[in-house]
Design a protein around this nucleic acid. Structure first.
Lengths: 279, 279
DNA sequence: GCCTAGGTCCCGTAG
DNA sequence: CTACGGGGCCTAGGC
């Protein structure tokens, strides 16, 4: 049995289950009527309501409502969870130091408490990141511009590391800043900062180019680049069009063998089945 | 009853419960042995493992493991959840458009499925934000420097809005950039960008000051500021020291009325009880 | 919808 | 530990 659940437990029962789950290193969910107080880098307070508290064995605490991707309150990994019954309420407190922070969740009633044994990989490799873009451009330097010669990635300067550094066909140093998505003014400032650092290194009269590579650029950023004498080149990130096989398979059909739940999910076409390609 | 739970349901049973919970607008948790596939702005794949899937009625989907504050995979609010049984697995798919993105969670087995009716406030007012810092400085302009006169907040320029704009005791324009925490090179660049925009507005020979206000600054950022002729002033954010009453109370004692759960939680001292001050 | 910047950002990596 | 920048960042506020 990899999950333990109690419904509408007394606070003592809930406390006992929490203690056991802490010891087992389980992932814990607590749903109930609670208040939430946070004090640390900032401070906040949340009145009574039914919410879901998630407690992880690494010290993470998350309070979720029925809206938003982000938790309404939280405590980062490395915290310590404590539970106690006090003033007729079940209090779950997650604390960490450096910085000193406390999250307090006080339950008037606990509707459900579950403890689950998690397993399997929790790290995942994402394709389509800036690093992937960099590697693709290193394989095809001409995609940047004809004759571009890469010299270094993450080249250090005294204002931070340059994504990609090289020389153009005429031997001029080129500072390349890569972004996986549309860029705004901050990316232009970042590139300018790096270019000026290289100019200082090479001598103030050095002819150093700055090149921002991204799928697109906002108007303001384009103007900033122009004013600073920097260049822009549009390059799509190498995610969806490079490896579209699995995406197409996942996109093509729906709802065959059995019924379907949810609004507006019309079966498009019960065509040929794709081979299962996971696990 | 505000929570419905099934343990080790068949996929058909799980599907039925999901459908009902979607209709009720419940917050849903599904714990089980699953794979996770994502394709959209990037792409990722995660092999079999026991994980917790959180589905919100606003379209949010979160896949959590036993580590990290951030979900290992997710789908933002506005997505549509669909569920189906296929190839002997329960498939939960969250889809959105613009951008086109799909999250697929395929359960080999479902250990537990719960549906909860959430209620109560989900918005929370945080104290200690940059806006609080700004308001505190507007109340006490002399905390910035003697004779400083605030003129505008979020003053627009053609490179973005200035946090706080004013004039010093000698009538010179001052661009103030506020940060609630220690700042690095990017904040210095940001301030420089604004200052140059104001200089262009006022005429290139204008004497415009730039002032970065934050709790502290890194060495590189300090050097960047100096090179650009910009200033720095250390100001603590107005969070923990302003309203320390509740924090102290929450910090003082632990574990009185009943027992205590968790590792390393020695009861410090069962001293005087503080008054309950929430709800 | 896009743009701009904040965030208790979180997170990994390098020093 | 700090520092720096990426992120499928997310989220709020304007336009």
């Amino acid at each position: 049995m990899t999950v333990t659940t109690v419904h509408q437990p007394t606070h003592r029962e809930a406390l006992w289950e929490l203690e056991a789950a802490f010891d087992r290193g389980d992932l814990i969910t607590v749903f109930g009527h609670c208040t939430v107080e946070y004090d640390g880098r900032a401070a906040s307070s949340l009145g009574l309501g039914r919410r879901l508290l998630l407690l992880k064995p690494d010290g993470t605490a998350l309070v979720h409502t029925d809206e938003q991707q982000q938790p309404v309150n939280w405590q980062p990994p490395g915290s310590e969870h404590h539970a106690a019954v006090r003033d007729g309420r079940l209090r779950v407190r997650s604390v960490r130091s450096s910085p000193d922070e406390t999250l307090d969740v006080r339950f008037e009633t606990v509707e459900q408490l579950s403890a689950m044994a998690v397993s399997g990989r929790r790290d995942l490799s994402v394709t389509g990141s800036e690093a992937d873009l960099r590697n693709a451009l290193l394989d095809q330097p001409d995609a940047i511009e004809a004759g571009f010669e890469p010299l270094a990635t993450e080249r250090p300067t005294d204002v931070g590391p340059i994504d990609l550094f090289g020389r153009d066909s005429e031997g001029r140093p080129v500072v390349v800043e890569l972004k996986r998505r549309r860029v705004g003014p901050s990316a232009a400032s970042q590139l300018q900062r790096y270019v000026e650092a290289i100019r200082r290194e090479e001598g103030d009269d050095a002819d150093v180019r700055g090149l921002l590579i991204a799928p697109s650029v906002t108007d303001r950023a384009r103007r900033l680049l122009a004013e600073a004498g920097l260049e822009f080149a549009a390059v799509e990130p190498p995610s969806s069009d490079s490896d579209a096989g699995d995406a197409d398979a996942a996109d093509a059909t729906d709802a065959n063998d059995d019924s379907v739940a949810a609004a507006g999910d019309d079966a498009s076409g019960p065509s040929a089945a794709e081979p299962a390609n996971d696990e």
